[in-house]
């Protein structure tokens, strides 16, 4: 594959064409790659937010994976501890992952001992291959492996169509699986990892940096961008409570600003999820069919959410499928 020199020319035209990319198609299976039209930003032009205390976040735009952004559409973070480095979500493609690795290496030579993949979605996982030579533990939820089995090839092929095989890389399976709670020490700095019940997906991990009180809820918390439901709505409402019980000082969401006030952001997300839940349940009780429900439930909740029109109907279908078995 190497030696084949694809030229990424005409990025101006790319931007024009990307407006016409279909969002629902790439959203199949909750694939979080559908966002706003590309602005021509490239992975290597992203900057890192230095949040202090060795904590760095690459804040990703609300975009769809394109050649221009190389799949870098989810937030990705790393923590430099006294002894080692931990990566949370290694990027949306191997190209994105390599960029992240180079940014880490600009800042520290400490070993990267842990790479956490917070859930199955490709914008959070496909950068892992870039870290293989560092020989970290690749950490995932106990349900991540079967989820990769079921969906990996589908995601891989979809992503390859957008980025080309040399940029996508291969899936890296977790070498350490977490089914409950685990703690990792970066050198007098404990990171607590929680394996959640089905919520955003069925394999969500969150991390809590105990020394700074920073929560990394990954895609259990969407900010600005409409949440996408790919696991269990009831579960998400439940796991949200569990996160709130931690009472973190601040949070780094999977999508949105690098750092947010957790309580306010979660309250806003809960308003939407609750409306989705209540509306769907009412529709089922009233015998409203799934297609009509997808057009009407929570339709008035769009204010302030990016991509609401593209995702709400699909969220209703997901919720309906789940709640109709109650």
């Amino acid at each position: 594959m190497s030696g084949f020199d694809l030229q990424w020319v005409g990025n101006g035209r790319h931007a024009a064409g990307d407006v016409r990319f279909t969002r629902r198609e790439t959203f199949a299976l909750g694939l979080c790659m559908c966002c706003l039209p590309a602005h021509g930003s490239a992975a290597h032009t992203f900057s890192l937010n230095d949040l202090g205390n060795g904590l760095f976040v690459r804040e990703a735009p609300h975009e769809e994976a394109t050649l221009a952004n190389m799949g870098a559409i989810a937030n990705t973070c790393f923590i430099i501890g006294r002894d080692s480095v931990l990566v949370i979500d290694p990027g949306g493609s191997v190209t994105d992952g390599r960029w992240l690795l180079s940014e880490i290496r600009k800042r520290t030579a400490k070993p990267i001992r842990h790479v956490v993949m917070t859930h199955v979605h490709p914008d959070h996982c496909f950068g892992a291959e870039a870290f293989v030579d560092e020989q970290p533990e690749f950490i995932g939820h106990a349900a991540l492996r079967p989820a990769f089995d079921a969906r990996g090839s589908f995601y891989h092929q979809r992503l390859v169509e957008m980025l080309g095989p040399e940029n996508v890389g291969r899936l890296v399976y977790p070498t350490r699986e977490i089914s409950d709670v685990a703690e990792i020490d970066l050198g007098d700095r404990l990171i607590r990892i929680i394996a959640h019940g089905a919520a955003h997906t069925d394999c969500d991990l969150s991390l809590f940096d105990t020394s700074t009180g920073t929560l990394f809820p990954a895609d259990l918390l969407f900010v600005d961008r409409i949440p996408s439901l790919d696991g269990s709505l009831l579960g998400w409402l439940r796991e949200a409570k569990r996160l709130s019980a931690i009472a973190p000082a601040r949070a780094v969401p999977g999508h949105g600003p690098a750092m947010v006030d957790f309580e306010a952001a979660m309250a806003r997300q809960l308003r939407y999820l609750t409306a989705l839940h209540d509306g769907t349940r009412r529709a089922i009780a009233a015998g409203i069919a799934i297609n009509e429900a997808s057009r009407t439930v929570a339709a008035d909740q769009g204010e302030g959410w990016i991509l609401f029109e593209d995702y709400n109907g699909r969220n209703v279908i997901q919720a309906y499928k789940e709640l109709e078995w109650e």
Partner: peptide, 16 residues
């Protein structure tokens, strides 16, 4: 609609 046939049945085959 696109890709409906190859879309997996659930989060994993076992779960499905």
């Amino acid at each position: 609609a696109s890709g409906g046939c190859s879309a997996p049945s659930g989060p994993s085959d076992v779960e499905a």
